[in-house]
Amino acid sequence: MAPAPADSTVLQIRSSDDVVLIRQQVRARAAEAGLGLVDQTKIITAASELARNTLDYGGGGTMAMTMVNDGLRRGIRLVFDDKGPGIADIQQALRDGYTTGNGLGLGLGGAKRLCNEFAIESTVGVGTRITIARWK
């Protein structure tokens, strides 16, 4: 998979404390990007869900955070990477209520609804990359 862009901040996801740290970092960046309070709350919540999945199912990983300002759009993009077992059936994983843990099965579907951009790349036995973005 392609390396993260040069201007991005990469954070480790190895414990539930890292999930809290990620929420704080995403908040700071989202505010810097000019997102309003509701949009900030949405991307932080989505990030919290994905970071926890990275930890619980991916066995830990990283999140790369990049500001986006291409003249048309301003916002932030987050890329979650892990080298876990991968997701065999992405459509199934996205379905609300589907869980292989003891969750509510809301994280993935919810994160998708909370963002403007959402993409999953996953290979069984190799890992998972989930990219989300929220615009101003």
Binding site: V38, T41, K42, E49, L104, L106, G109, G110, R113, L114
Partner: peptide, 8 residues
Amino acid sequence: ITLVELGL
């Protein structure tokens, strides 16, 4: 607002 969209 976010909770509702999340589906909780």
